[in-house]
Design a protein around this nucleic acid. Structure first.
Lengths: 177, 177
DNA sequence: GGGAACGTTCAAAATTTTCTGAACAATGTT
DNA sequence: AACATTGTTCAGAAAATTTTGAACGTTCCC
């Protein structure tokens, strides 16, 4: 009578896996990494044996092109390992289940690079703001008091940047995960 | 002869400010927060007196509608304070320059909520995976060994989630900023 | 009350990002 | 050599996000 496979309260495993995958997608999306990344990783995280590109694409209902792209992204973050099976031309993938590795080796460098870009700009602006003191055109400009305040702020931003970078680079963080 | 205001190497302050603002936009964008957020905050960060909505919109070359939206977002993160000037109907805004406040009061709750969503799903899937042991339809399904492995992984994910949430909630973090 | 000055909301437009199918390169098979 | 299989790339399509202009609600002033 019931076409549904599980007879009472619980959802079927297939359905639950699907929810897990979508939740993974939502999470990665919420953190600005794109929805596919999380979906693909979540799927492999629940897979007990390596999956081929085709299987992955089919499971996620996505083109092979998308799968290829997202897997290479995940691999570049060490979130996924590529497995070669002897006598099989397909590429197989499995999830790295050690989050410490992914965060430390994969994600952190990217985060630090982004912060570095910001830090460089702060530095430049700070320089411009100090040098300006003498080179200001008679033109209507920023008052000396305001200049001082701006420099104070920029230095404070710089300080935060440095502290943050240091913390992210320290193994203290790695030990926490 | 030279229309440019600064005579040698340095860029004009206006130009440098522009670069700073755009860099702010790029940074917030890189972290998945949208480009406007960073632009607006960066601008106010360099402003030594509160700015009205119109001034902000004009400086960022953006509609008043956008400015209104982005400022409310920033205000909800405590990244910006609203200032009322007596006898002036305009709203004025100034940047919160204390990053600890912004991170702790503004950004962190959002991050934790996102993590919470993920955590809830892990919990659900874990439950489904344990309950399933008995309720599995005779159907082709996951082997007991694989089930055990999946549960192991889910518990590990749950553990990470809990540790992360704890760290983010602790004032230890706040003290670092 | 009529009108001006502001900020907000929302449907639609503009833009950016993501996804796909087709073409291709590389490798193996018959 | 011709063909199959597999993964990648890329221009264009599709989808999601952001931005806007116009309509609206308030508040204040005359």
């Amino acid at each position: 009578m019931f076409s549904n496979s599980s007879t009472h309260q619980g959802l079927s495993w297939a359905a639950e896996r699907h929810r897990f995958i979508e939740a993974g997608g939502n999470t990665s999306h919420a953190f600005g990494l794109g929805r596919m990344i999380g979906r693909a990783y979540a799927m492999l995280y629940l897979a007990t044996s390596p999956m081929s590109l085709d299987e992955i694409a089919a499971t996620l209902r996505v083109s092979k092109a998308s799968a290829s792209t997202v897997l290479r992204q995940l691999a570049s973050w060490q979130a996924v390992r590529q497995i070669w099976v002897a006598g099989d031309r397909k590429d197989y993938y499995e999830a790295e289940t050690d989050f410490a590795v992914i965060l430390k080796e994969g994600l952190m460098p990217g985060v630090r690079k982004k912060l570095q870009t910001a830090g460089t700009q702060i530095e430049k602006t700070l320089q411009s703001s100090t040098q300006k003191a003498s080179a200001t055109p008679a033109n209507e400009e920023v008052s000396p008091a305001d200049q001082a305040e701006i420099r104070r702020r920029l230095r404070s931003a710089q300080q935060l940047h440095q502290r943050l970078d240091k913390v992210l680079g320290s193994k203290l963080l790695a030990r926490f995960l």
